[in-house]
């Protein structure tokens, strides 16, 4: 993972909360590393969590306090794990030998509701193709409160971005660039590419780009397009290659 560098001046601030919350990030990391949710390697997961947080800071996301609170919780669990059981300071709400337990319970509970939500999503997809003779089709108003990434979650996009950034890391040393690109420009570029190609690999989006600034700007443009539902992202299998496509009609 990269270290946070300067925050780029942005017209477009990404509000992380409309995509995912801190528990989503933890579940993602647990799944990605294929670790046991009941036996989370807290040291590794904490490091990775902090890396993602750094990356998001570098992108100048609006990171809600909930993410910071979770970071503090992870740190606390990590430090308590280092102490022998009988030397840990008493905590009122920790009635357990394992400091991870509260978090595990929260994750498991959350996962259940995530699954319930995805079932509701399926019902919703089914219902939108059903029309009743008797009454008007049931349509709810448009939902501005969040963004659904149907197949790829934001953390996978961040992870893919990180790979791209690593590629340019060395070349960037000591260079000073005038700011040639804006997010608005890059939105145009992506839309044009997608119109001609129809489908685009995530990594191809950054093919000719040599600077971190341009990559970051392009990435933010992509997120904005996803938010505006102008672009869909799909993935070949779990943790596979990511593609950009025109949104399904």
């Amino acid at each position: 993972m990269t270290e946070p560098t300067t925050a780029e001046p942005q017209d477009y601030k990404v509000d992380l909360e409309v995509f995912e919350g801190p528990l989503d990030l933890l579940l993602y990391l647990i799944k990605k590393d294929e670790v046991d949710i009941y036996d989370i390697p807290i040291e590794t997961i904490t490091t990775q969590y902090m890396n993602y947080l750094s990356l998001m800071r570098m992108l100048d996301f609006n990171i809600a306090g909930d993410f910071i609170v979770m970071a503090a919780t992870l740190m606390m669990i990590k430090s308590r794990m280092l102490l022998p059981v009988d030397e840990r300071p008493e905590l009122e709400d920790e009635e357990d030998d394992d400091p991870r337990w509260d978090l595990v319970r929260q994750l498991v509970e959350y996962k259940k509701f995530k699954d319930a939500a995805s079932h509701l999503h399926d019902l919703q997809l089914h219902q939108e193709n059903v029309f009743a003779a008797a009454d008007e089709p049931v349509e709810v108003g448009s939902d501005e409160s969040g963004v659904t990434l149907e197949e790829v979650n934001i953390f996978e996009l961040l992870s893919a971005l990180n790979t791209v950034l690593k590629r340019v890391e060395k070349e960037e040393l000591g260079q000073i660039f005038a700011q040639e690109f804006t997010v608005a420009d890059k939105i145009e570029v992506i839309l044009k590419l997608l119109r001609t190609a129809g489908r685009l690999a995530f990594t191809d989006l950054f093919n000719d780009m040599a600077t971190r600034y341009e990559i970051v700007t392009t990435f933010l443009a992509l997120l904005e397009l996803i938010r505006l539902r102008q672009v869909d992202v799909v993935q070949k299998g779990e943790f596979g290659d990511i593609f950009l496509v025109n949104p399904a009609a």
Binding site: V18, F113, K114, Q124, E128, G141, D143, G146, T148, L149
Partner: peptide, 21 residues
Amino acid sequence: LKLDKPSRLSRPSLETLAIVA
């Protein structure tokens, strides 16, 4: 029926709705 793209609920909304439900 000349219907637009159906308006679907986002994941944050669906999760919240699931908990309420």
